[in-house]
Design a protein around this nucleic acid. Structure first.
Ligand SMILES: [Zn+2]
Length: 415
DNA sequence: GGTGCCGGGTT
DNA sequence: AACCCGGCACC
């Protein structure tokens, strides 16, 4: 069979033009016979997510709006990368398929939820937020606007590196919008006198997926205050009343307190096993403050969320408090070494606020998620046959089969 | 170190 | 879907 090279029209795209520069006429079109021989060979090892039909909205905070397939494939965690479960194009595609109702619904619902949460006009008007520290608020506002504009699709995702236990998938999510947020385990923070509606919104959904040994605490970021409480509502109240001087009796919240607390996750096992190097903060006292950031330079609870859930659509619609309430997403990617299976994430201690890059996220995530790598020896032994690369050599790369060009399993010289 | 190709990303 | 590539196991 001959190999058909495609030129001209096929090099019209920038990518192809670029490729044409490095290798003239190379690899632009299909080798016709190859597509006939084994059309599916090279594309069969996709992340399950790609063929996953369910909606992939943030089931943490929008589950009731966009119910998802609940058997979320863990291997997709890496694909999510820095907050991206789906590629942009995929997000766009899904978005287009859902418009106009879906997107609008989300916005409406988000707004509705918010309004029901807080009667504050501040919620709907970011600019009127009173004493929010400038660096913090600006930073995350920037993040929000950037991410939103870069993903006008309105789809969004987040880094779910905190999926603590792959073997314990999320409980089925209801399609019924009235059964919102089925994510909290009953009894979680039940001692807190927080109204249910507020409770589920402000409570981090993560705990339900946590191993028993993991304890999430909430730490005050106010300078020189290292108050640690077991509930977000508690810490919010603490910040509100103690630091922000808000009315003690009022449950009113403009969301500002979100900037002054952070979430820490403590591995009780590690504690008891004497992993003192991590020096996790004691649940009730103020242990040695590790590298815990101060309010203005820290990644506070509210901001942290948006750094990674970089596609949360709510920001421009909602106020500063919106993302923190609707997208309570944890974002820790520190490699935790041997305890990895339980994901001993200690947010405050491990974080290095400004240093987490996209690639860091991905790499750390790969570390965190036990690679489904084939066990030693299970990998298919290399066949004897010489493949295109060997046969034709690099200089005749245009003669390689498509698969070889794509670094996939050779279609031409099979074993 | 070269090769083969898996897994995952981008377009 | 097509294309690309990092990275790793195998040789
Ligand atoms: Zn080949």
């Amino acid at each position: 069979m001959c190999h058909v090279k495609y030129r001209g029209k096929a090099q019209s795209s920038p990518q192809q033009q670029q490729r044409a520069q490095s290798s003239i006429g190379w690899g632009v079109g299909k080798h016709q016979h190859e597509s006939i021989i084994s059309p599916s060979v090279v594309s069969k090892s996709k992340c399950p997510l790609r063929s996953w039909g369910g909606n992939l909205e943030c089931w943490m905070c929008f589950s009731q709006l966009y119910p998802t397939n609940n058997d979320r494939p863990m291997c997709c965690a890496a694909a999510r990368g820095a907050g991206s479960w789906l590629s942009r194009s995929q997000q766009k595609l899904r978005e287009e398929g859902r418009k106009p109702s879906g997107h609008a619904d989300k916005e409406v619902m988000a707004a509705t939820v918010l309004t029901s949460l807080s009667t504050s006009p501040l919620v709907l008007n970011p600019s009127s937020a009173p004493t929010v520290p400038e660096p913090g608020s600006r930073a995350w506002k920037d993040v929000l606007s950037n991410s939103y504009s870069s993903s006008t699709s309105g789809n969004w995702s987040w880094d779910t590196s905190d999926q603590s236990v792959p073997s314990t998938p999320s409980p089925p999510l209801s399609n019924d919008a009235n059964k919102n947020f089925p994510l909290l385990t009953p009894g979680d923070d039940v001692n807190e006198d927080v109204p249910e509606s507020t409770h589920f919104m402000f409570e981090d959904p993560i705990p339900r997926k946590r191993k028993n040994s993991m304890k999430v605490m909430f730490k005050c970021l106010w300078k020189n205050c290292e108050k640690v409480l077991s509930t977000s509502s508690g810490i919010q109240r603490h910040v509100r009343t103690v630091h922000l001087g808000r009315n003690t009796d009022s449950d009113y919240s403009d969301g500002e307190e979100d900037f002054y607390y952070s979430e820490i996750e403590i591995n009780m096992d590690s504690l008891t096993e004497g992993l003192s190097s991590l020096t996790p903060t004691s649940p009730t006292t103020c242990g040695p403050p590790p590298v815990f950031p101060l309010p203005l330079t820290a990644v506070p609870h509210s901001e942290r969320i948006n750094m990674n859930s970089s596609h949360c659509p709510t920001p421009t619609l909602l106020s500063q408090s919106a993302p923190s309430t609707l997208c309570h997403i944890r974002t820790d990617h520190a490699y935790q070494g041997p305890v990895i299976q339980v994901r001993t994430v200690s947010i405050g201690e491990k974080r290095q606020p400004a240093a987490i890059t996209h690639s860091t996220v991905i790499k750390n995530h790969a570390l965190i998620t036990p690679a489904p790598k084939s066990a030693p020896g299970t990998r298919k032994p290399r066949g004897e046959a010489k493949k295109c690369r060997k046969v034709y050599g690099m200089e005749k790369r245009d003669m390689w089969c498509t698969a070889c060009r794509w670094k996939k399993a050779c279609q031409r010289f099979t074993d």
